[in-house]
Amino acid sequence: MRLILTLLCRNEADIVGSMLDFHLSRGVDLIIATDNGSSDGTDAVLETYERKGVLRLLRESSHTHDQAVWVTRMARMAAEEYGADWVINSDADEFWWPTGGNLKDELAAIPASVQALSVERRNFLPPGPNAADELPFHQKQTIRERRSLNSRGRPLPPKVCHRGLAAIAIGDGNHVVMLDGQAVPAAPSSGLDILHFPVRSYDQLERKIREGTEALIRNPRVSSRVGDTWRHLYSQHLLGGTLPAYYVGLRPPPTTLEEGLASGDLVDDRRLQKALAMRPPL
Rank of each mutant, 00 (worst) to 15 (best):
R2Q: 10
C9V: 13
R10F: 02
E12T: 09
D14C: 14
V16Y: 03
G17M: 02
D21E: 08
V28K: 01
I31L: 11
A33T: 00
T34P: 04
S38W: 01
S39I: 15
E47P: 05
T48V: 13
E50F: 04
L57S: 02
R59H: 15
Q67P: 01
T72V: 04
A79Y: 01
A79Q: 03
Y82F: 15
A84Y: 02
S90D: 07
F95K: 04
W96M: 08
L103M: 05
L103F: 02
K104C: 09
E106V: 12
E106P: 03
A109N: 12
A112K: 13
A112D: 15
S113W: 14
V114T: 04
S118Q: 14
E120D: 12
R122G: 04
N123F: 08
N123P: 09
N123K: 14
P127L: 07
G128S: 15
A131M: 14
D133S: 12
E134P: 07
L135P: 06
P136G: 12
S148K: 08
S151C: 11
R152W: 11
L156C: 06
P157T: 12
P157Q: 10
A167W: 06
G171K: 02
G171F: 01
Q182P: 09
A186D: 00
A186H: 01
L192Q: 00
L195V: 11
P198D: 07
R200H: 04
S201K: 06
D203Y: 09
E206R: 13
R210M: 09
E211R: 11
R225E: 14
D228F: 08
T229Y: 05
S235L: 15
P244M: 10
A245T: 06
V248N: 08
T256C: 13
E259N: 13
E259P: 04
G260P: 02
S263N: 07
S263G: 05
V267F: 03
A275T: 10
A275S: 13
P280K: 12
